[in-house]
Every structure is written in C-alpha cells, then in structure tokens.
Nucleic acid binder design. Structure first.
Lengths: 187, 187
DNA sequence: GATGGCATGTAATACGTTACATGATTAC
DNA sequence: GTAATCATGTAACGTATTACATGCCATC
C-alpha cells in the first residue's frame, strides 16, 4: 500500500465502532460518498491488508440462520496511524471533471449538444444540492449532541458551497452559449 | 481500453494539430491540468494504443542533431470517435476531496490541526484562483479570434466559480472552528 | 415466484503514478 | 560545470472498477 487513502476512510469509520465490510459500504454510501466513494471490490481486500498490518482486528461471528459476519475493530496502532494521517496536510487535490474535458473541446460538436451536457450537469447537481440541504437541516438539529457533528456539518457546507457554484456557473455558461446561437445561428 | 478518458484529452489536443508525446504533456500542463492531468507514463502508452486502433497515425522525424520526434496526427476515425464521446452526456462525476475526508474525522485530532489543514487548502486555492484570473483576462482579449476561445473561457469560469466557493467555505469553516476553541477552550 | 437486502469474497482487467534509464543541446 | 529543456520510453507497482460466484431470509 503506497498511500491508499480509502484505507483511512475505513479506519475513520472503524474509529467510531466495529463494523463488517458490508456495514462499511452502507456507511460510506450514506455519508461520505459524495466526496469519497468505494465499492466492495476495494473494501474487502483493504480490510484484509489492514488486518495483516495490525491496524484492525477481526472477529468472526457465526450463526446458523444468517451469513457469517466478520466484524472488524480498530486497534491502538490503527488509531495512531489514522491520527497521524489526519494531522498531515493535503499536498495536492487531484480532481478530474469530465464535463470540463468535454466542454474544452466543445467547438468540435454543435452548440446545442454542449448546452445539453451543461443542462444535465446542472440537473444532477441540483438533486445533490437538495440532498445536502437535507443533511444540513438534520445536522443542525443535533449539533450539540456530539463533537463529530460539527465536522460533518463542515463537509456538508463545503458540498453546498461547491454545488451552488456549479448552478451559478451552469446558468452563465448556458447564457453565453445561447447568445452564440443567436449571433451566428450556427447550430 | 474500457473507457479511458485521458485518451479523449489526447485526441482533443490532436484534433487541433499534430503533436509529439512531449508536446502533449506541455499542452496539458499549460491548459487543462487543473481539471485533467496526465503524466508521461500515461501519455506514451496511450498514444501507442491509439495508433494500434487506428485513431491516430505516427510520423517519425529523424535528425542527427536532436532526438527523434514521433509526431502523431489524428485520423478521420479518431475525429469521429472524439465527436461521439463529446456528444455523450456525462453519467456521473466522481470526485475525491482528501481535505473533506480528513475533516470528516476531524474530532480525532485537535482543532488547531484542522484549522491548519483548512488554511493550507485555502492558500493553495488562492494561488490557483489568481492563475485562473490571468487566464480569463487573456482569453477575453482574444475571444473573437477563434471559435475555441469561448469554450476555453467556459472552463476557466468554472474554475473561478468553484475556487471562489472554496475561499468562502474556508473562511466560514475557520470561523466555526475558532468559535469552538473559545467556547470550550479544548485545544 | 420474484425482488431486494444481508453477507461474503475472487478474478480479471484497466487506470494511473513513480522510478528508472538514456542522451543531446542550450543557457547561465 | 550545472541546470533546464527537448525527447523517448519501460517496468513495477498500486489503486479502482466490473463481473462473477454463492446463498439465505423476508417481503410483496
């Protein structure tokens, strides 16, 4: 593991409570997936590697009726590793926006096709924004209950700021492209 | 190649003019790297695959004095492939923000460490924003010269919107965390 | 009887980064 | 002399996705 960051997402979730691989997948989906997603094919092998390096330990729960559960618990060593990483500043965020890659070469296709791409981006973003607004309301209600909630709120606020920026940009971009159709009627 | 998107970045650049692998790297750095980056280790093998599948063709330029240049030109088939991809809407943007992954588990470390992480994110973003502002000025000056420039401007405007959102968020987040220190003086 | 949730994982493949390896020319 | 730019690429490794494979239980 050179610098697998998903392993820290897993360690972070386990620092609250013991979980199975399946649980971890559900948690990620429900909480951090909009800025850090992971599938089963990544979670299960990572858990095995974390166990091998002694950062988590496994307890097998067998039951006749239900599938065998493998519950993972974070170790002291795992907690230290997590804290060490959390305190280390991010060197560089690497982001890839497919919408921008398409738009950059937009002159190769028609204006209306570009407008459609922008519109789909905007609609998708609007749905995400609504979900984030819901999270914000929920978190504000329970803010004082737990030290973690403020940090959750900060990440949600980030999402709201960025998605509002997407909406504003998409409107401006659509206007600029539409005025191009009117000027040159080259569509 | 399942759905290598970097290949479209390369095809897009070649749709303007023939380039070497080295040229492509420079172009990417100077134009799209803030939303789509690629290294030599990705560019050279991708060019070879593109040639094998007939989307680009290669011309070897030998010269005694300078290194052998391999100039790649997009084919008709390559142009069609590019256009087909450009017109296909983006299904899902997958983004990973390391800063948010760290912040989500922020309660595990001290408030001042979180504040430092936010500050570094903000400072880095500010530098990028200044670069983007420069791009905007340049592009506005030459907007009417070329059909491409409007599309370049749209991607730059996107960057500006998003980076302004980063700045506003970072300020709010820092304030919220600072008020936590004052309330609980738990740092 | 079919769908969906719970629960595990492996295998194949693709995507991407980093280090390694070479060597000439040009500018300071 | 030294660093930067031009110019090529391979090898090793790590990260991530997708498909495959299994099987029970509960609900509709």
């Amino acid at each position: 593991m050179r610098d697998n960051k998903t392993k820290y997402a897993i360690l972070g979730l386990l620092s609250h409570q013991p979980l199975t691989g399946y649980d971890i997948k559900k948690r990620i989906e429900a909480t951090i997936s909009y800025f850090w997603d992971a599938g089963f094919g990544q979670i299960y092998p990572t858990l095995q590697k974390l166990e091998t390096s002694g950062l988590v330990c496994k307890k097998v729960e067998m039951d006749e009726n239900r599938p065998t559960r493998k519950v993972y618990t974070i170790t002291k060593k795992g907690e230290n590793e997590l804290k060490k990483w959390l305190g280390r500043p991010v060197e560089k965020e690497v982001l890839r926006y497919e919408i921008l890659l398409k738009l950059y070469f937009g002159s190769r296709i028609s204006v209306s096709e570009n407008l459609r791409n922008i519109k789909e981006f905007k609609d998708r973003g609007k749905r995400t924004l609504e979900i984030l607004n819901g999270y914000e309301q929920d978190l504000k209600r329970v803010l004082s209950e737990n030290d973690d909630h403020l940090y959750y709120l900060l990440t949600v606020r980030f999402g709201q700021y960025v998605h509002q920026a997407y909406q504003a940009w998409a409107e401006e971009a659509a206007k600029l492209l539409e005025s191009k159709i009117i000027e040159g009627h080259n569509d």
